[in-house]
Design a protein around this nucleic acid. Sequence first.
DNA 1: CGAGCCACGAATGTATACATTCATGGGGTG
DNA 2: CACCCCATGAATGTATACATTCGTGGCTCG
Lengths: 219, 219
Amino acid sequence: MKSDRAYATLLEEIQSGVLVPGAPLAEAELAARLGVSRTPLREAIGRLVADGLAVQQSPRITVVSDFDAARVQQLFEVRRALEEAAARLASTRGDAETFARLADEFAAASTNLENGHSPAATADYYALIARFDTAIDAAVANDYLTASLRTVRTHLVRARRLARHDRARLRASAVEHGLIANAIAAGDADLAAHATHIHLHNALQGTLASLSAHPEGTP
Amino acid sequence: MKSDRAYATLLEEIQSGVLVPGAPLAEAELAARLGVSRTPLREAIGRLVADGLAVQQSPRITVVSDFDAARVQQLFEVRRALEEAAARLASTRGDAETFARLADEFAAASTNLENGHSPAATADYYALIARFDTAIDAAVANDYLTASLRTVRTHLVRARRLARHDRARLRASAVEHGLIANAIAAGDADLAAHATHIHLHNALQGTLASLSAHPEGTP
DNA sequence: CGAGCCACGAATGTATACATTCATGGGGTG
DNA sequence: CACCCCATGAATGTATACATTCGTGGCTCG
């Protein structure tokens, strides 16, 4: 459907920063630019508002939602709550084999990220995280939790772009994910939850540090 | 706006059970019944889908989402994660005076629910809970958490309707809420989180018990 | 007699025309 | 000269007309 394509395009533009926070989402202009009529475009904007990626600034003006360091902290408060719960539930319900294999992949990714600047290594790593997230969702088998996590992950993409983690942080992240995956594979809910807590603490610290280092610059 | 009214009406009908799980949301029929054209009605249905109250069963058929005991358990898993986190954050950030006063109101509600069958007492109690939720949201000051909790609360209304708690359960609930409010007022995050955990455990048990007692009957 | 295919219809998806509201700017008046 | 009011327009909100797709029913052929 055209409304799906319009939503996907606008989502990508917001996540990638083409549409910056505060940018107005004017129907006529976007409809012309995306080559659809206003009807499917309105539907796309409605979904963005439901996601929290856009907000109705005034009754007639919809803009891209704000996203700064304070918002990142708020996002991680929710992320901690949901991912710790998910890690606990996955430990009880998940398939040990699946998560043991993912732990191995995280170990491999950790060493792979050590070698020089393979430009694809970063993308590969994020793809691995996406597969890990999918495995968590499947293990937890809770539509409400999956839906809430989907929203968090959608916003998280914006945080990743702002932060631009260095290679060292990514390598540490891989190790931390390996710990979580192993804990889930072992069925140790407390360990999985605590490992998740540690990981999110480090991820938040790294993100905030990167944010204050390059507030909006390009280096 | 007409789309807002259509959304509010359909939301109310799903929450109250007029529209049962699996009921198809046909655009033409609903548009005629609600007295709006298909455009704002489509927007309303889109919002229901975003809330998870409706699902696209097939590419062309949207129905009211399922809701049974298993779903209630899933919902409470998310609710536990979010409300425990919210209780902790409110303990740190909340205004002690506000929550001390709410604790008093819960105490009063508890005794008020003891006296005979004042039919308005139940409605008053749910209104008090709504004010408590609002106070939590204000104290936490986290848009992402508030948004996630809003979704949970929306679904929770369906659970309440299925369960039809007895007076004793409501009285116990008031006492439990009083404990949470006092813990937040005292700034004791652990106590608030644990009191929330206990409350949600009891609320889930009560709901599931009521559900298995009257699976769908009218007594 | 059964199975498969075609045609028709009813539904959704999209585009566009119409209504409405809010903002802005210009003109008039105090 | 400044302030207020009204008019004009550009935006959104709504209705409707058009396009498209999927399902169903009946007909035909094996």
